[in-house]
């Protein structure tokens, strides 16, 4: 398909989105990611029945934790698509990239840089 999506996106492969936990998402922010999104199978199509539903909940929980410490919860997001929807994958990547660019840099990363320089 030769689709293009933003090059700043780093893919972390997991066997199922049900493997993704709140701490994985939070650690990505601690390590300086500006945003993190989980792309799971379509709801109702999980091979393990509810892996993607679990992931959605955890994404919501991570968003709440981030919000409670003053970081925009919009920086974490859950998307669903089937493995045949490459076009959608690229579209979601562009959408997430746009959202994060509008929000700007991860404030934690900015603060860390400031602290290291001081």
């Amino acid at each position: 398909m030769r689709l293009e999506y933003p090059t700043n996106i780093k893919i972390v492969r997991v066997p199922c989105t049900g493997k993704v936990d709140v701490i994985h998402l939070l650690r990505s922010f601690e390590k300086g990611a500006d945003g993190a999104y989980v792309v799971g199978c379509l709801e109702g199509s999980c091979q393990y029945n509810n892996g993607n539903f679990r992931a959605r909940k955890r994404v919501e929980q991570a968003g709440e934790v981030l919000e409670s410490i003053g970081i925009e919860k919009e920086r974490v997001r859950m998307y669903n698509l089937s493995s045949g929807e490459g076009t959608l994958f690229a579209e979601y990547a562009r959408e997430m990239d746009k959202i994060i660019r509008e929000l700007g840099e991860n404030p934690v990363k900015k603060a860390k840089r400031k602290m290291d320089a001081a």
Partner: peptide
């Protein structure tokens, strides 16, 4: 253990964000 990890991560980010080491 999980709650410890999540809270520790959140607190680290909070204090860092607020310029406190």
């Amino acid at each position: 253990k999980k709650e410890v990890e999540v809270l520790a991560s959140a607190l680290r980010m909070y204090f860092l964000n607020n310029g406190k080491k």
